[in-house]
Structures are given as C-alpha cells and as structure tokens.
Simulated scan of single mutants.
Amino acid sequence: MQLKWFSVFNKKNGPYKKLFCFPYAGGNASTFASWHNSLPGHVSVLGLQFPGRAGRIAEVPIDDMEELTTIVADNMCALIDDDYIMLGHSLGARVAFEVALKLVRKGFPGPKDFIASASPAPSVKRKDAPIYDLPETEFLEALRNMGGTPEIVLQNEELKTIFIPALRADFKLVDSYQQSLSKLNSRAHVFYGTGDHTVPLKDAKAWDLHFTRNCTLNAVDGNHFFIDSNKEKVLSLVADIIG
C-alpha cells in the first residue's frame, strides 16, 4: 500500500504493532521493503518516503528539518492507533526523534520503543565541515568517501541530475541540524556499527540523555551502512525489541 509519505509493506487486519522506519541520507523507503518477512507476524512495517526520490522523484526535496518533521508528524497522526515503534538510521534517527517530539506536543503518546541506529545523539554538536553546498566534483567525492551511494549514481550524468538535488537536501538536513536536549518517555535502543568511524561510540551512547529510561546499547558488525550489509543482525535485534 502506497501512501504519500509512508509505504506500507505488509498491511494487516486486526490488532498489530506499527514499525515506522526512517532511512539514512540518500536512502528511501525501499530499504525496509522486505523487513516484515523477518519480523513477528503482528508487525506492520511502514517506510518513510522523502520527496525527491523513488515514486516521489518529481517532487522538490525538503532541506529544512523543521518543515520536514512538521509535515511528517502531521501525516503520522492518522496512522497512530495503538502502541507503535520508531526506527531511524543515521539522519533518519534524528528526523524520527524530532517527529516523535512533535507528536507528543500534539497530544499523541510517544513511541513505545525508539530505535536510533548509526547516529550521534541530538545533543552531539556536528564536528565535520558542511558538504551539502560543495561544488559538484567535491560533493561527489565526499559521497564516495562516505560510501552508501551507488557508484553508478556518482558516474552517470543523467542519474546525477536526478539524484543530486535530493542528496544535497538530505545533507543540508545533516549539516544544519540544531542540537537538542529534549527527552522522550520511550524505551530506547541504540545500534552502532563496530566498524563505523563516522559515529564514535561516545556519540552513540549520548542518546541516553534523551530518554527518561536507560538506553540499551547494541553492537552490530559493519560500517556506517550496517543496516544494509548486516541486515540479518539488525532484524534480529528489532524482532527481540518488538517481542
């Protein structure tokens, strides 16, 4: 089932839990398309689809965190009807966190469980220089060094024309994110990559500051994109959290 902002990969009838998944910069909802096959049968998986990619490729990407998270929260309101779970990877974790705060301010319950994957905590000040506004050659080289963006996109002129605006918008979200000290009353779980040199362990542990309960910390073998390279481990951890 395709909604404008969320792809529902396994629509269910009767009581079930919803897992809202937020992709990394440059990613899209398809990362989570097969997840329901490895999760308990009472779980429905919904993947956030940013404008400017996949089925929304013709739409203008959003590069302002406040605007983006306000719209996403508004669209989630109609989808929340019971306990729900939020998971975000890298940029997606910070987007999910800001969306959850907005939902609470609207009077909705926060997520029962919040999973922050491969992301520094919102309170951690970004140390790297911005890349979103670099000249194209330098921007592409920065993406290549990070990994995660297919080489065919970085080399093909037509694909670059299509995807670079969305990538720049995503990295503007990353580069301009304002530190937050807010807290959620959710069970919190942090996933970090054992070979992820972009998110120091202390920055991942700092998520503990943003919840009224202690965070669980879970190591996953792999680099920053372990959500793709070690999907089996990630899904095993998610399944255990959902129960």
Rank of each mutant, 00 (worst) to 15 (best):
L3Q: 14
F9P: 01
K12Q: 04
N13T: 03
N13A: 11
N13E: 12
Y16A: 00
Y16L: 06
K17S: 14
K18E: 12
P23G: 09
A33V: 10
A33K: 11
H36G: 03
S38E: 13
S38H: 13
L39D: 05
V43D: 09
S44G: 03
V45K: 08
L46Y: 02
F50W: 06
P51W: 06
I57A: 07
E59D: 15
V60Q: 13
P61I: 01
P61K: 07
D63N: 14
D63F: 12
M65F: 12
E66V: 02
I71F: 07
D74E: 13
D74R: 01
N75L: 00
C77P: 00
I80P: 01
I80W: 04
D83P: 12
L101M: 10
K106M: 08
G107W: 10
F108V: 10
G110S: 04
S119F: 01
P120H: 13
R126E: 07
A129L: 15
P135E: 14
L140G: 07
E141I: 11
N145V: 06
G148F: 05
T149V: 14
V153E: 10
N156W: 05
E158I: 08
E158L: 10
E158F: 10
L159C: 07
T161Y: 08
I162K: 08
I162E: 00
P165V: 08
R168V: 04
D170H: 13
D170Q: 12
F171A: 11
F171G: 01
K172C: 04
V174C: 07
V174Q: 07
V174D: 06
S176Y: 05
S182R: 04
K183H: 05
A188F: 13
A188K: 04
F191Y: 04
D196T: 04
K202W: 08
A204W: 07
A206L: 14
H210M: 02
H210A: 09
T212L: 13
R213P: 00
R213F: 12
C215Q: 02
C215I: 12
T216A: 14
T216C: 13
V220L: 09
G222I: 02
H224E: 05
H224P: 00
F226W: 08
D228G: 12
S229V: 10
E232C: 11
E232T: 14
V234R: 03
V234Y: 13
V234Q: 11
L235T: 02
A239N: 07
D240Q: 14
